[in-house]
Design a binder for these strands. Structure first.
Length: 435
RNA sequence: GGAGAGAUGGCUGAGUGGCCGAAAGCGAUCGCCUGCUAAGCGAUUGUACGCCCCUAAAGGUGUACCGCGGGUUCGAAUCCCGCUCUCUCCGCCA
């Protein structure tokens, strides 16, 4: 959410920025309601002021044993007038909020104006595409053959875009979660969080998923609770409505969670494999920073996410999202895209964003300056560190061998028991049956 | 799921219809004093929104906020209703 006063005073700049985002908006409805709100508010407050003064007078007179009947009658009418104006005020405030809540964040000045994802500049690349002396196969084939990913049974148990992990597949997913959390907590200084995976409407609104993107969420029937689409939601809401001390900042949290996305409108995209699921695992990094620090923190956050890929020795590139590709709440975003050799594409595996004060204003997350004692909004940031399912995909495809087995990256081997396990192989028939 | 108790400022805690944005204490900040330390003295100590002033900041002023939402009343932290959360007991449960 943007500041209403800021919108009013910078209406031309805002119109231009929305244009650049490819989401032009007519600001006239905002302006008329904003003005109407102030007009009515003034009237209501003047009447209330009058009411307060006269009510005090009535009290005084009664105490002195004087008659106050005329004044009381007068005030009854003033109260009625206040009631009418309050109704009108509430109405216009709701309309105004409805408009403001659907205005996206303004892109940071360093974000390039572009038309679509094609215009996202590549900031850097790391590593090299692995070479194969055979044709690399897609992870869905490898996963089924190794009997670690079971797509038909996932569909039977629940439906399309749900997958059953088995044996070494489940183990690899778990190893990745632990590896990522260990790295971020022990070496990057994040505090580990295990949040609720179900949140209320207020939390969803604070981080920007609601009211605009309800179609992407799973809502629990007969409740006002939602399955989280990312740990960003519960973790950012940890400090909703709080005023933090300046010396607490920057706060760094790392959280594993399952993520649930309904994503209506994704039909036909990525129908095979693990890339686009209704349920997936993710380790999320969240920061609360002072405004002057937030863009430095974004760089740090991004390198923390990158470090996971580096240690797994997975080739990737970093792109900076252009204005048109930027998410609703973000002021600036870096996407990490990992190389998937079977498909010959770079695939998004992490998205690291600075939201500026956009979420903080919605969520009322503030801090008090030690010097000056002023209250200001914090800046919130978050990034995937990383999407676990997609990391598993990248490992299967990049570490596959000609015999159909998949080597386990060095850094993950300690998570597979005593270190004897170095590869995932097709199970022997007898073992397969026992499983 | 059933029964009961509770929710007040950074914290503790008083306040059952007007003199209450809210006593007192603690904490914090600034200043004074004491040759250091401790103690003492004084002042300040919420947030949001509107208006005035204005380059801005500061300032002035008004309104709202005592868990949340309604109601009664000229007037509500205080009375009534609904909800949420916390605590205790019972039931159920991993």
């Amino acid at each position: 959410m943007l500041d209403i006063k800021y919108i009013r005073q910078n209406i031309d700049l805002l119109t231009q920025k929305l244009q650049e985002r490819g989401q032009p908006m007519d600001m006239e409805p905002f302006l008329t309601r904003e003005e109407k709100r102030r007009l009515i508010l003034k009237q209501v407050e003047d009447l209330r002021s009058q009411k307060n003064a006269v009510s005090r007078e009535i009290g005084d007179r009664k105490k002195r044993g004087e008659d106050a009947a005329t004044l009381m009658e007068e005030m009854a009418q003033v109260s009625a007038a206040i009631d009418r104006l309050e109704t009108a005020l509430k109405e216009v405030e709701e309309e105004l909020a409805a408009i403001v809540m659907t205005i996206p964040n303004l892109p940071h000045e360093s974000v390039v104006a572009g038309r679509d994802a094609q215009d996202n500049p590549v900031v850097r690349t790391w590593g090299e595409k692995p070479t194969f002396d055979f044709t690399p196969r897609p992870h869905w084939d490898l996963g089924e053959e190794l009997e670690i990913l079971d797509f038909p049974r996932g569909a039977k148990i629940t439906g399309a875009r749900f997958t059953l992990y088995r044996g070494m597949g489940a183990r690899l997913e778990r190893a990745l979660i632990n590896f990522m959390l260990d790295l971020h907590t022990a070496e990057h200084g994040y505090l580990e969080i295990l949040p609720p995976f179900i949140v209320n409407r207020e939390s969803m609104t604070a981080t920007g998923q609601l009211p605009k993107f309800a179609a992407d969420l799973f809502c629990l029937a007969s409740t006002d609770y939602f399955l989280i689409p990312t740990a960003e939601v519960p973790v950012t809401n940890i400090h909703r409505g709080e005023i933090l001390a300046e010396d607490q900042l920057t706060i760094n949290y790392a959280a594993y969670s399952a993520c649930f996305r309904s994503e209506a409108g994704s039909y036909g995209k990525d129908t095979r494999g693990l890339i686009r699921q209704h349920q997936f695992n993710k380790v999320e990094l969240v920061k609360f920073a002072r405004p002057e620090d937030s863009y430095d923190e974004l760089e740090k956050l991004t390198t923390h996410a990158e470090e996971v890929l580096r240690r797994l020795n997975l080739h990737y590139r970093v792109v900076s999202l252009c204005t048109a590709d930027l998410g609703f709440s973000a002021a600036k975003t870096y996407d990490l895209e990992v190389w998937l050799p079977a498909q010959g594409v770079y695939r998004e595996i992490s998205s690291c964003s600075n939201f500026g004060d956009f979420q903080a204003r919605r969520a009322a997350i503030r801090f008090r300056r030690t010097k000056g004692g002023k209250v200001e909004f914090v800046h919130t940031l978050n990034g995937s560190g990383l999407a676990v399912g997609r990391t598993l995909v990248a490992i299967l495809e990049n570490y596959q061998q000609s015999d159909g087995s998949v080597l386990i990256p060095e850094v993950l081997r300690p998570y597979f028991g005593r270190g004897e396990v170095v590869a995932i192989r097709k199970p022997l028939p007898a073992i397969a049956e026992r499983n």
